[in-house]
């Protein structure tokens, strides 16, 4: 038996080394520069974005970005529904285990990690982080950043807010409702914006108001904002679902 496992290990390591050798070690062909050349000459003219990475993922390859947001939305739905079903199992008091990082005020004294220091600090940092998130989201076309990065910063800002504020079950419910509404409407708007250009200019996924004189830049800003809102609300929903698991 031991011989067999050893043989398996040897074969797998051999295969892995071979694969790593063939896949990772480059031969002497130089890295292609065609895309860069083209983007340097046309990128800003086409899209109005100084940040060429933004120009690619929101203009040339915006369809990939749509796919990415869809993966995120499916992951959120899946995570929430699985976590929820665990909650139901733990409702049974005999098998229940408390794993909470509870957000409910009454339980807080029992929890070592929720100190007053944490509350004060996070409560003060929260708004600053939130503001920074919106900045990163809105400046994505001319500086490093964009919808996804801004969205995750917004989500952490929301989490800091939640950690640092008096909190009860009622506000949790309300927060969930607001966040999921923002998430759903940002998603619908994102799809509608992508479809709108079919009506106005007959091209799928491009600036719908080009004829009206709106620059492509503003289209990118709008997409960044929608993605940022969607990602921010989605990730904070997921975090809330995971943190507030408790025995009720």
């Amino acid at each position: 038996m031991k011989m067999k496992t050893a043989a398996v290990h040897v074969i797998v390591i051999f295969a892995l080394v071979l694969l790593a050798g063939c896949l990772f070690i480059p031969d002497d062909t130089p890295w292609p520069t065609d895309v860069r050349t083209r983007l340097v000459s046309d990128g800003e003219k086409d899209t109005g974005a100084k940040n060429l990475v933004s120009a690619i993922y929101l203009a040339y390859r915006a369809f990939d970005t749509l796919g990415e947001t869809i993966v995120l939305i499916v992951a959120i739905i899946g995570t929430m529904s699985v976590v929820e079903s665990v909650k139901k199992i733990s409702d049974d008091p005999t098998t229940a285990v408390t794993y909470d990082f509870s957000l409910v005020k009454e339980k807080r004294s029992s929890h070592k990690l929720r100190t007053h220091l944490l509350e004060v600090v996070t409560g003060k940092i929260g708004p600053v982080v939130l503001l920074f998130g919106f900045y990163v989201m809105g400046q994505g076309h001319i500086s490093p950043g964009g919808g996804f990065q801004g969205g995750t910063i917004i989500a952490s800002g929301i989490m800091l807010f939640i950690l640092g504020n008096p909190y009860s079950k009622v506000t949790e419910m309300r927060q969930n409702k607001i966040l999921s509404t923002i998430e759903a409407s940002a998603f619908v708007l994102f799809i509608l914006v992508s479809l709108l250009s079919i009506l106005t200019s007959g091209i799928f996924f491009s600036n719908p108001l080009e004829a009206a004189g709106v620059k492509y830049e503003y289209y990118i800003i709008a997409l960044n904002a929608l993605i940022g809102l969607k990602v921010g609300s989605g990730i904070s929903l997921m975090c809330i679902a995971m943190m507030s698991r408790r025995r009720t």
Partner: peptide
């Protein structure tokens, strides 16, 4: 409308429906 623009509608229609379903879930 030309074929290029209508071709994507059948791909996007289910997606849009899923977006509205997401809204239905919130209400």
């Amino acid at each position: 409308m030309n074929l290029e623009s209508i071709a994507f509608i059948f791909l996007m229609a289910p997606l849009l429906a899923s977006g509205f379903l997401l809204l239905a879930k919130t209400v």
